[in-house]
Design a protein around this nucleic acid. Structure first.
Length: 434
RNA sequence: GGAGGCGUGCGAGAGCGGCCGAAUCGGCACGAUUGGAAAUCGUGUGUGGGGCAACCCACCGUGGGUUCAAAUCCCACCGCCUCCGCCA
């Protein structure tokens, strides 16, 4: 949630910031109006309640002095005020609920540093990297044998079986087999080990309560994007960000313990409503996938450094995998709802001939922390303040799998995999046609 | 899933329906004492909303209800513990 106090005190600033995302100023006015109504109603309610409490004390005193008649009169008066109070409370609750709904649907204010722009076409490519770049090697040009899309490579090597996945769960549910499945396991083990120096490994639940989904901003606005288990009212998480953000929900952390850095591998579930058709072949867009996530709770002062740490860790993994990539600074219009600033990492896949988003590294400010009510007690003894949350994939495996298989394809049709994975791949660094 | 017990502040733990935002002990902070420390003594110590302030309001797992008045009574739900059942 955005800070309602900021809407109250500096609506112009909120309007200007949200306008960069395309939010009309009237939306901010509506929030301000409802907030004013709610506060006025609350004030009326409090006066009435104070009156009831005062009368109740007088009833008590009258009874103590055995003045039954007076006690009865006072009790009647209190009952009457109590009815008024009830009505006032209903009004306050209604306004509060309306206000909350409105605020829950309002996106975060983009960071001043995020570039201007309306959509993906306005994102800024900050830099590119490719193997050997430091030694002056030119950007690699894929050979013909690398121009085969991963779904063809996967099918002919029998390491990816999309038809079987579709038979089990429908389209866009991949089924990996043999060395293809083992490659996923290797990537996960390798990545978690690489983060273990500073990030505590977590295995969270992947089905969560509605409140947990609301805290990150995935609900109520994007209910159509998530799988929902109706009978038990649980949601399948679209990313480990969801359980990790709520791990300390409602708590006050000590500043000395910050930043709290966590890493987790989870299955991620996305309905991808409306994504049918384009760019859904093979592993480019799937309903269920595995991803290693980096996450942190930080003080506002720590947040920028943590943001860069997560970004550099995700980049380091790509470099160790020898995958050419670019860093994209998302413009205000293309930011996710909860994010204030996001860097996407995109890998080039020669067979699919596309830049594939394999990581999204975001700084959420206090937007999610306010929804999740996660605060910290400043070391200087000041009042508790909201933490900042940050996260980034490191990394999402299906598209990495695709890029590895396409770049690694040899003239003889086999696939060579990067050396860093050798401890987890056992004997074979290469997947050969069998 | 069945039976029973319990959910109070940083922790432990009290709390005849009114004087309870809450005893007491511990922890922590500050002060006194001390050459310094321990011990001792004193003071303070929740979160949020409103008001220039005095002060007012909310919160004792969550949500309803009873009552002039609810931490306290009633109902439902959730969580934890114990026993039974089932189970990878």
């Amino acid at each position: 949630m955005i800070d309602i106090r900021l809407v109250r005190e500096d609506p112009a600033r909120v309007k200007a910031a949200l306008a960069r995302r395309g939010v009309p100023p009237e939306d901010v006015d509506a929030i301000a109006r409802l907030d004013g109504d709610h506060r006025a109603a609350l004030a009326r309610q409090e006066v009435l309640r104070a009156r009831v409490k005062a009368l109740s004390r007088e009833v008590r005193d009258a009874k103590r002095s055995s003045d039954t008649a007076r006690a009865a009169v006072l009790a009647d008066e209190s009952r009457r005020v109590g009815e008024e109070l009830k009505a006032a409370a209903r009004e306050t609750d209604r306004l509060a609920a309306d206000l909350r709904t409105l605020v829950l649907y309002t996106p975060n204010l983009p960071s001043d540093d995020a570039p201007d722009g309306r959509g993906p076409e306005d994102n800024v490519v900050l830099r590119r990297w490719w193997p050997g770049q430091d030694e002056g090697a030119p950007e690699p040009v894929p050979s013909d044998h690398q121009r085969v899309p991963h779904w063809e490579v996967g099918s002919s090597l029998r390491i990816l079986d999309m038809p079987s996945g579709a038979r089990l769960a429908g389209s866009m549910f991949p089924l990996y087999r043999g060395e293809g499945a083992r490659l996923l396991r290797a990537l996960t083990s390798w990545a978690l080990t690489r983060h273990a120096d500073a990030y505590e490994e977590i295995r969270p639940p992947t089905l969560v309560l509605t409140d947990t989904m609301v805290s990150t901003g995935h609900l109520p606005k994007f209910a159509d994007e998530a799988y929902h288990i109706e009978r038990d009212d649980l949601w399948a998480i679209p990313t480990a960000e969801v359980p990790l953000t709520s791990m300390r929900r409602g708590e006050i952390l000590e500043e000395a313990d910050l930043p709290v850095r966590l890493t987790a591998v989870t299955q991620c579930f996305r309905r991808e409503a409306g994504a049918a058709g384009r760019e859904t072949r093979g592993l480019l867009r799937v309903h269920e996938f595995e991803k290693v996530e980096l996450f942190a709770y930080a003080t506002p002062a720590q947040a920028p450094a943590v943001h860069l740490d997560i970004l550099s860790r995700a980049e380091a993994l790509l470099r160790e995998l020898d995958l050419p990539y670019r860093v994209v600074d998302l413009c205000a219009g293309d930011l996710g709802t909860s994010s204030a600033r996001t860097f996407d990492l995109e890998v080039y896949a020669p067979g699919s001939d596309q830049w594939l988003e394999v990581s999204s590294v975001s700084w959420f400010g206090d937007y999610q922390a306010r929804r999740a009510d996660v605060r910290f007690r400043p070391a200087d003894g000041g009042p508790p303040a909201l933490v900042h949350t940050l996260n980034g994939s490191a990394l999402a495996w299906p598209r990495i799998w695709a890029a590895l298989v396409e770049w690694g394809r040899q003239p003889d049709g086999s696939v060579r995999l990067p050396g860093v994975l050798s401890p987890w791949l056992g004997s074979g660094l290469a997947i050969r046609p069998g």
